[in-house]
């Protein structure tokens, strides 16, 4: 059963220096209960894509083309009031840096309780709402949740704060949880705990998880499917295990190789940086860095070729 259906989504940022083509023609689905990871470097458009799905895209960013269908609803046609209802209840977001995404002057428990209040489930001051918030804190494995309810963000560790943010996101049993680099600001040991927690909660509550990350290791740990993005375009989509064992696109190959930490083969990882999205290179956007690039790559038009149950955007598989 499809929960999220993104079709031909194109997002531009209109800046004085020119138009940034942040996301171009993104098309994918997320099934109920599925974990999909979107992976790419900084500036590949993955966060922009996630913000658009959560309705948090701000000017100068704008959706130029395409649709986002969520649970049969066309999100691109919603007004502000309807959006507010959906955000926090059906679609929620866990952000990257737990240190700045909590209000420093409000106890963490009340910030969880606030989600209930915002969606008309009683006042933040009522005991009932407080008890529900404590229950949610317990659910994200916070020790002594009734005591922690009155803790302020500066009294908690980064991992704890991330748990609080996750608590806020799962409080109303959302259908889709978008996690934007949920572990990037954390220590390696805490990273694994947070990922396992997300996976556990997903299984318990049957929600879908859209994981945005630059870390292929993180994606491989819990994702069912992986979408690889490069310079605003999807370059490969497939099952996580298949992508890890047999990457097709040259860029994906480079990524997988870099994770496997094979010193000799690491030499094959292309150097350089992703291109400017104001004036991207003609043809395949990866060709300036690609070891397999040929003449035809400079004129090739971005297409996703279907190969078994994989989609890949490289002329090698045309």
């Amino acid at each position: 059963m499809t929960l999220l259906d993104v079709r031909g989504l194109t997002i531009h940022y209109d800046l004085p220096q020119g138009t940034v083509r942040a996301v171009e023609d993104a098309t994918f689905t997320v099934d109920r209960g599925e974990v999909v990871a979107i992976i790419g470097e900084s500036g590949s458009g993955k966060t922009t894509l996630a913000m658009a799905i959560a309705g948090l895209l701000r000017p100068p960013g704008r959706v130029v083309r395409g649709h986002i269908y969520f649970d049969g609803l066309d999100l691109s046609r919603l007004d502000d009031d309807k959006w507010r209802e959906i955000r926090g209840r059906d679609i929620t977001v866990v952000f990257q840096d737990p240190n700045t995404y909590l209000n420093p002057l409000m106890s963490v428990g009340r910030q969880v309780a606030e989600v209930f209040e915002a969606h008309g489930m009683g006042s933040i001051r009522s005991r009932e709402v407080a008890e529900r918030a404590i229950e949610i804190l317990r659910r994200v494995r916070i020790q002594d949740p009734d005591k922690r309810y009155w803790s302020y963000p500066h009294e908690l560790s980064g991992g704890m704060k991330q748990r609080v943010l996750i608590a806020m996101a799962i409080a109303l049993k959302p259908k889709l949880l978008i996690a934007d680099e949920p572990t990037s600001a954390l220590d390696a040991t805490i990273q694994a705990q947070i990922l396992d927690l997300l996976e556990e909660l997903r299984r318990e509550m049957g929600m879908s998880l859209l994981l945005i990350t630059h870390d292929l290791g993180v994606a491989a740990r819990i994702a069912h499917r992986i979408i690889v993005m490069y310079a605003g375009q999807m370059v490969e989509v497939g099952r996580a295990d298949e992508i890890m064992s047999d990457p097709l696109h040259p860029y994906t190959r480079a990524l997988v190789r870099s994770v496997k930490l094979d010193r000799k083969r690491l030499l094959g990882v292309p150097s350089g940086a992703p291109p400017s999205l104001i004036s991207p290179p003609p043809g395949c956007r990866f060709h300036p860095r690609c070891p397999y690039a040929t003449e035809q790559c400079t004129t090739w038009r971005h297409t996703l070729y279907v190969r078994d149950n994989r989609r890949v955007a490289c002329v090698l598989y045309a």
């Binding site: 909590l102 002057l105 409000m106 606030e114």
Partner: peptide, 25 residues
Amino acid sequence: EPYVEAGRAMGLSGPYILFRHILPN
């Protein structure tokens, strides 16, 4: 501030954010 952004992501309204999150800070 990111937590104002987070508030919006939780579905809080403009005046609510203004009085609950910005004014106290």
